[in-house]
Simulated assay, not measured.
Amino acid sequence: MVAEAPEFSARVLQTLRQPLESGEVVLHRAHGAVRYPARFQLVLAANPCPCGRFHGSGAGCTCTPLERRRYLSRLSGPLLDRVDLQIGVLPVRLRSDEPGESTAEVAQRVRRARSRAAARLADSGLSVNAEAPGRWLRHHTPRSACRPVWSALDRGLVSARGADRALRVAWTLADLDDQDSPDVAHVEQALLLRRSAS
Rank of each mutant, 00 (worst) to 15 (best):
S22R: 13
R143Q: 15
S144R: 14
L176G: 03
V110N: 07
P182M: 06
G56E: 01
P50M: 06
S102K: 08
A160L: 12
C51M: 06
M1F: 11
S151M: 15
A197Q: 14
G60A: 09
H31F: 07
A10Y: 07
G134W: 14
W136I: 02
R29P: 09
R39I: 04
A170D: 00
R120L: 08
G52A: 01
V158C: 03
V92N: 10
Q86A: 05
A33K: 07
S115D: 14
C49H: 00
V34M: 02
R155C: 04
D154P: 08
L94T: 12
L94P: 14
L173E: 02
R135K: 11
H55M: 10
A166C: 01
C51W: 00
E188H: 10
F8Q: 02
P99W: 03
R194C: 08
A38K: 03
A132F: 03
A117N: 02
P78I: 01
L75N: 02
A152H: 01
N129Q: 09
V184Y: 10
E7C: 00
Q86L: 06
V2R: 09
S124T: 10
A45V: 05
R29N: 01
L192K: 13
R93D: 15
G156T: 09
L193K: 12
A30W: 10
L16P: 05
H139A: 10
R116H: 07
C51T: 01
G134T: 11
